[in-house]
Design a protein around this nucleic acid. Structure first.
Length: 1151
RNA sequence: AGGGCUAUAGCUCAGUUGGUUAGAGCGCUACACUGAUAAUGUAGAGGUCAUCAGUUCAACUCUGAUUAGCCCUACCA
């Protein structure tokens, strides 16, 4: 028996199928039954289980899942190892929030050990939720044996990669892993430097309004600067602009463009009205001075007035190079040094200075800008800072983003307002440090202009607070040295969409910077590098074994004579402790343990670990190797699984995982890491806004799946728009998918099940009716089905799931349900099992079976449900005979192969005629208010071409029954009935007519019937247009029948249908008979009779039906399964409305 | 600031190498049909194809500019 259902309940169906998959281990079987040498490699980008899964994860994982399932059906072995991303800032921040601590407390209020333990406990917090959504959405991934980035084996593989880079050298001998001191983006709120790709994550650059200041540096009157002074006492100042006033105390130089033209201008300080002479780029004068004021009297303005006119005079002009070496007074003298007094506070040159904005003079603070740093180094300008307890020079802003104690009244202030707690900045009297500094400069007569300035400024992707550019010691990967190779290999990757690969990713590779690997953090993979304190010796480990060996060597050394002499007792004890530590079975490669490992250099000095951790992006980019603990284990497995055939993640991973996978693969193995990559877009709310907790527009994935089912959710997401477009997520859309696609398919299945059960029909796989013997309609739907198989495979092979899903929808809806089933209904419920009925069952079964396979990738639950229901009655036999339907799940079957032999283009053309003719005929009926149950005598079809009659004859029966007409009559020109019209065929005519096209179109439109016929007969016609002569052929005209005078006509393109609407008594009686059938069927249904029940019908005697019962009594009886129809003079029964005028009693009872 | 992508019906989306009247689904209105009924058919309403200019006999389609949105790039002081 086939299971029949009252109504579609997708969530219940999900539960049933899930249980089945788990009981029968279908996922496992789907992998293991495929040959190992036919692998299709998929990499799972590891999610972090310390956050809850969102609806966008359902989107991303649907994309991953559907291609993996598809390849499985194609016979590939698709192992899908799950993974967890367990390190990184988000986890640390969450722990700190929950423990109520900050970075500074680590090592004080809480030990590193405890802190890391807390992180370890947090990482898997929502694993259960993740497992649950994974299961419920039908994402097949192996979560029993996942890779976990904090495990020692994983870390060891990462170390191995780092060691490869450490020893790998560029052509010029530079190592790929190196340490450098640079100005880097740094997030004080997160307490860490940021890599360039972290800074390039979406949303990092935000438009913010900062305070900008144009300040004036007082020039010292020396021999060099004398030319700037008209009088000994003149107040000469250089103007510079900054958007970060907090860097002004760190100013040590002003940079000018040597070839830029500058001017000295006499004017007045806008705020104090004191006379002053300022120096700025000539081109920038107009930005600060109104030309009208060049001629007003040189008198001080009223500083209290609004927009006072401030007079000015250009005193003299010169080039930037003339200013080089000129010294000025320190602007904000909090910290200085003897070196600075002699070599600092000086004008230097830089060719990167522009006059696009500002003053053409760049305020230079070496610790807070990459250009500044380089410029000061090149010009030997001393840096400004204070010394820490180890005697190292540190900037005037500490790592929390606060001014150091030496900064007088600014000491301890955060340099950016965003770093303060909200309560502080919410206070109305709060003034940002930038503002306080600006006010001070104003008071001291050093400010020329203070104003707000809008610009884009980078923000930390995790804390959302602005970054500082800050000096840090870091380890880098010399990615820039391999950018050509990376770009070259990138060209071999199939990106979906293509533009992400060539555009976004490609351009990024072209401008590739070195990868800053260092993180000053606690919970992550430690750098496996040890150094002596004097940096004379360094070692990088690529395995735990090598580290252990080195520890053993160190232990041997301390027992030697040299060791005893060279090392202090403390150092000796440290080495002994190291030995005990690393030899433990549960030795943990994380901090703080790894930091306790002390080694001995060849010169006998102790070596300590470089304290940095590595960027977590390196963790996830290492997964192709580290998930197998390569190269320490699983060499064969790794080789079979590298590179990946397919990966998919959000487009936001372009600079994240997609990059790190690519970079590591290219640098370490000179290979791509993946061959095909799908980057999916954002999931927005239905209005197109980003989903965020604060907006309250977040869609809960559990809720959604519980309500609508996983398949409808998945189907909606993929069929609605291509994965790489942003999806405006609308629950209404899921409902639509459920009703339209799943509802239709469900109805079709239920229809099949109903009759197949009545007929006890099951397919005999080895003995089906040859297609050639089946009806036109059967062969047509099979032809459509195999076109679908082609289209589907092509779309999926091209990683275009949206096209694939839409193709299935079209077939199920338009072709299968709306045409094939609708027109075949009678074949299923009429008569006994004969060849035609058998063909109908076999055809419908095949369609449903193949559709279940094709939809299995995207709708794994429903497809399996349908497949299992369809095949349940024959599975035992199939197993016994080893036929294709022996599999217990659709996910274990082999995808139907394309079969050109089943595609019949000519048949599809014929059916297209049938569909269009029916549609036109029905539209005439509608217009003439002639119900379809009323039979009509005939339709007339003007003949289009030679094949037309035979084409239509092939599908004649379908047309006649569909539109309830008795016959088709073909008419040709000879009949004289046709009134033809013609339009110009622009495509053929355009080229040869050119400018005369318009005139030709008018001429053709105006051609008479006779002219058109003449042209058709003779095959050509010469016309003259605007003095040019052209020859028209029939192909240049699009000829259609415009009308058949005296008939009701409708047309579609060249196809025209005329309907004979005259009625006679016989037709009317038959119409009434069909109405009666319908009414009696309705009564049957109302009374819940079985479809097979035989009945007796009593009808109230009424003149309107007499003729119908008389002439068509047998027909009615056959249709409604009645033994007899009795006309009663009077009948106690409910009145049934036959038409507008007539109502009569009908009584139906079981025979 | 520069670069890229996008802009088609109320909504979600198609739209071939430029070619006649720009389509589908949903939603809306009316009428039908049905032994598939959360389905279906027919018809109707709904479009300045973002704006402007150019190329062309002909532009939703090609080119340029503009506007809006998104993404990317940038130390830009």
């Amino acid at each position: 028996m086939y299971r029949e259902y009252k109504q579609l309940n997708l969530p219940a169906l999900d539960a049933e199928i899930l249980q089945f998959w788990e009981d029968e281990q279908i996922f496992k079987k789907s992998i293991e039954q495929r040959p190992a040498d036919q692998s299709y490699v998929f990499y799972e980008g590891p999610p972090s289980a310390n956050g809850k899964p969102g609806i966008h994860h359902v989107m991303a994982r649907t994309v991953k899942d559907l291609f993996c399932r598809y390849q499985t059906l194609k016979g590939r072995r698709v192992a899908r190892k799950g993974g967890w991303d367990t390190h990184g800032l988000p986890i640390e921040l969450q722990v700190e929030k929950e423990l109520g601590i900050t970075k500074e407390d680590i090592g004080k209020k809480i030990t590193v050990e405890e802190y890391n333990q807390a992180c370890r406990d947090t990482v898997m917090r929502y694993k259960d939720l993740w497992d649950d959504i994974t299961r419920k959405m039908g994402y097949w991934v192996d979560l029993d044996d996942p890779y976990i980035t904090f495990e020692n084996n994983y870390i060891e593989s990462v170390w191995n990669l780092l060691e490869r880079l450490y020893h790998k050298k560029t052509a010029s001998g530079a190592p790929f892993l190196y340490k450098g001191f640079t100005i880097q983006p740094y997030s004080p709120a997160a307490g860490t430097g940021l890599s360039s790709h972290e800074l390039n994550l979406p949303g990092c650059y935000k438009e913010v309004t900062d305070l900008s200041a144009v300040v004036m540096f007082k020039v010292k009157n020396t021999e060099k600067s004398a030319f700037l002074f008209s009088t000994e006492a003149e107040d000469v100042r250089i103007m510079a602009w900054t958007t970060t006033p907090w860097t002004l105390p760190s100013n040590v130089a002003l940079t000018v463009g040597p070839d830029i033209h500058y001017a000295k201008v006499r004017t007045f300080n806008p705020y104090t009205a004191q006379a002053v002479s300022v120096i700025l780029a000539s081109e920038r004068l107009s930005a600060y001075f109104n030309p009208e004021n060049a001629s007003i009297p040189m008198e001080p303005h009223d500083p209290a007035a609004k927009n006072p006119a401030i007079p000015y005079r250009i005193d003299r002009t010169f080039y930037g190079r003339d200013l080089l070496g000129i010294h000025y007074e320190q602007l904000l003298p909090y910290v200085t040094s003897p070196e600075l007094e002699t070599d600092g506070f000086v004008v230097i040159g830089g060719n990167w200075v522009t006059t696009e904005d500002g003053t053409g003079v760049v305020h230079t603070a070496p610790y807070f800008g990459a250009d500044d740093f380089r410029a000061c180094k090149e010009n030997k300008v001393p840096f400004i800072g204070v010394y820490d307890d180890k005697g190292r020079l540190q900037p005037l802003v500490d790592r929390q983003g606060r001014f150091v104690q030496e900064m007088g009244e600014f000491a301890g202030m955060y340099v950016k307002a965003e770093y303060y707690p909200k309560e502080v900045t919410a206070d109305k009297s709060f003034k940002s440090t930038d503002l306080l500094i600006s006010l001070k400069l104003k008071d001291e007569g050093k400010a020329f202009k203070i104003e707000k300035y809008k610009h884009n400024y980078p923000h930390c992707w995790r804390t959302d607070k602005p970054v500082l550019y800050y000096p840090l010691d870091s380890w880098f990967i010399r990615a820039s040295a391999a950018k050509e190779r990376m770009a070259e290999l990138n060209k071999t990757i199939n990106w979906k969409p293509e533009s992400t690969g060539s555009g976004r990713f490609g351009q990024w590779l072209e401008n590739l910077q070195d990868w800053n690997l260092s993180r000053s953090r606690y919970w992550g993979i430690p750098l496996p590098i040890w150094r002596t304190e004097d940096e004379s010796e360094e070692v990088c480990f690529g395995s735990v074994e090598a580290l252990k060996q080195r520890v053993q060597d160190a232990n041997a050394f301390i027992n030697s004579k040299a060791g005893q002499e060279l090392l202090s007792q403390q150092e000796i004890e440290a080495v002994i402790r190291s030995y005990d530590l690393v030899m433990r079975d549960d030795f943990d490669l994380h901090r703080p343990y790894i930091d306790q490992v002390v080694l001995i250099a060849t010169n006998g000095k102790p070596m300590y670990r470089e304290s940095d951790l590595i960027d977590v992006w390196f963790d996830s980019g290492s997964m192709p190797y580290a998930q197998w603990h390569y190269p320490f284990e699983n060499e064969e497995t790794f080789k079979r699984n590298f590179p990946a055939d397919f990966i998919a993640e959000g487009v936001d991973q372009t600079r994240g995982w997609f990059y790190t996978l690519h970079a590591i693969a290219v640098l370490c193995f000179d290979s791509v890491a993946y061959k095909n990559v799908v980057s999916n877009g954002l999931v927005l709310d239905k209005e197109g806004n980003k989903m965020s907790k604060s907006k309250g527009n977040v869609v809960d994935p559990f809720n959604t799946i519980d309500t609508y089912g996983a398949d409808a959710t998945r189907w909606y997401m993929i069929s609605n728009a291509a994965p790489w477009e942003n999806l405006k997520f609308d629950l209404g859309g899921i409902l639509e998918s459920r009703n339209k696609f799943f509802g239709t398919l469900f109805n079709t299945y239920n229809f099949f099940a109903l009759y197949a059960n009545l007929d006890q029909w099951a397919i005999d796989e080895q003995n089906t009716m040859p297609y050639a013997e089946r009806s036109e309609l059967d062969r047509w739907v099979v032809s459509k089905l195999y076109n679908l198989v082609n289209d589907y495979r092509n779309a999926m092979d091209d990683y275009e799931p949206t096209k694939a899903a839409r193709a299935i929808e079209l077939f199920v809806d338009e072709h299968l349900s709306n045409w094939y089933v609708r027109l075949s209904r009678r074949r299923f419920w009429r008569g006994d099992m004969g060849p035609d009925k058998r063909a109908a069952y076999e055809t419908l079964f095949e369609c449903l079976m193949v559709v279940s396979q094709l939809s299995a990738s995207l709708a794994p639950f429903f497809a399996d449900w349908m497949y299992r229901n369809l095949t349940a009655p024959l599975r035992e036999k199939a197993k016994h005979l080893h036929t294709p339907l022996r599999h217990e799940s659709v996910h274990l079957t082999d995808l139907t192969q394309p079969d050109p032999g089943k595609i019949d283009q000519a048949l599809e053309t014929r059916m297209d005629y049938a569909q269009r003719i029916c549609s036109l005929a029905l539209s005439i009926r509608k217009k003439e208010k002639l119900r379809v149950r009323q039979p009509l005598q005939k339709i007339l079809l003007p003949v289009l071409d030679e094949a037309f009659i035979s084409d239509v004859e092939g599908v004649k029966d379908l047309i006649l029954s569909e539109i309830n007409v008795k016959e088709i009559e073909y008419i040709t020109d000879a009949s004289g009935l046709l009134k033809k019209g013609a339009k110009a065929n622009f495509k053929t005519l355009g080229g040869k007519l050119g400018k005369d096209m318009k005139a030709a179109a008018d001429l053709i439109a105006g051609m008479s019937n006779a002219e058109i016929n003449a042209l058709e007969k003779s095959g050509s016609k010469t016309v003259e247009l605007n003095g040019n002569t052209y020859t028209l052929t029939p192909e240049d005209l699009l000829i259609s029948t415009e009308d058949l005078p005296g008939w009701k006509v409708a047309s579609d393109g060249s196809l025209t249908v005329a309907l004979d609407v005259t009625l006679n008594d016989a037709l009317l009686a038959e119409g009434t008979a069909r109405d009666l059938v319908n009414r009696i069927q309705n009564v049957r249904k109302e009374q819940n009779f079985q479809v097979t029940d035989r009945i007796v019908v009593q009808i109230e005697k009424h003149p309107a039906i007499l003729e119908a019962v008389l002439q068509f009594g047998d027909y009615i009886k056959a249709e409604v399964l009645a033994e007899s129809i009795i006309l009663e003079e009077a009948l106690e029964a409910e009145k049934v409305e036959l038409n507008d005028q007539v109502s009569l009693g009908i009584l139906v009872s079981l025979n």
